[in-house]
């Protein structure tokens, strides 16, 4: 079962180190493929947009290398507690719902997308009091819309239906 797999600090540390290495690699790739051909990677401080990010990227690379050495050396000395992977199912589902909401926000608009998102997250949290959930979803989404739209004059995303409430 995948659910019984354990992940812990050690795994996350490798992920973080990889993330940083990707960042460094992107900086060098962009400097080589975009800034250098545009003439922005040479000359003095007025014309050279690459020197500073390159310098910082080198420092970061050095630090990450050191961190990786530490991770290799301290192998075993770290008391790895670890979490069963299935503990992360609920957060993963909810992040997915939230991501889906952000993706649909531009198309559906705030007023259509928000209450269902709230409702879905409540359901994913395990709530089953449907009536109360509907009331909360609508109440919270319209209450916040009222505050932002009518009190702060913020225009919330209207989506393709151009739904905006003239409070």
């Amino acid at each position: 079962m995948i659910g019984s797999l354990k992940v812990g600090r050690r795994f996350a540390e490798w992920c973080a180190a990889a993330l940083m290495l990707v960042l460094v690699a992107l900086v060098f790739q962009q400097i080589r493929d975009v800034l250098a051909p545009a003439g922005m990677a040479e000359g003095g401080p007025y014309d050279n947009a690459a020197a500073y990010p390159r310098g910082v990227a080198m420092v970061l690379l050095g630090l990450v290398a050191l961190q990786i050495v530490v991770q290799l050396v301290s192998r075993g000395s770290l008391n790895e507690r670890g979490f069963r992977l299935d503990r992360f199912t609920r957060p993963a589902v909810i992040i997915l719902i939230f991501g889906l909401y952000l993706g649909l926000l531009g198309t559906l608009g705030y007023h259509v997308a928000s209450a269902p998102m709230l409702f879905a997250i409540m359901a994913a949290c395990g709530s089953r009091q449907w009536g109360q959930m509907i009331a909360f979803s609508l109440g919270i989404s319209f209450g916040l819309a009222w505050f932002f739209e009518s009190q702060l004059d913020v225009v919330l995303p209207g989506g393709i239906f151009n739904l905006n409430i003239p409070w």
């Binding site: 909810i94 939230f98 909401y101 952000l102 926000l105 531009g106 705030y110 928000s114 998102m117 709230l118 997250i121 409540m122 949290c125 395990g126 709530s127 909360f136 979803s137 919270i140 989404s141 916040l144 932002f148 702060l152 913020v154 225009v155 919330l156 995303p157």
Partner: peptide, 28 residues
């Protein structure tokens, strides 16, 4: 209750961040 708090905070983060620049890109 966290079942109310969590979705509300996520929605607030979304609108609050959107309102700063009126930009969906900022949400991503």
């Amino acid at each position: 209750r966290k079942v109310i708090l969590i979705p509300t905070v996520l929605l607030l983060c979304a609108i609050g961040t959107f309102a700063v620049g009126s930009s969906i890109f900022d949400l991503w």
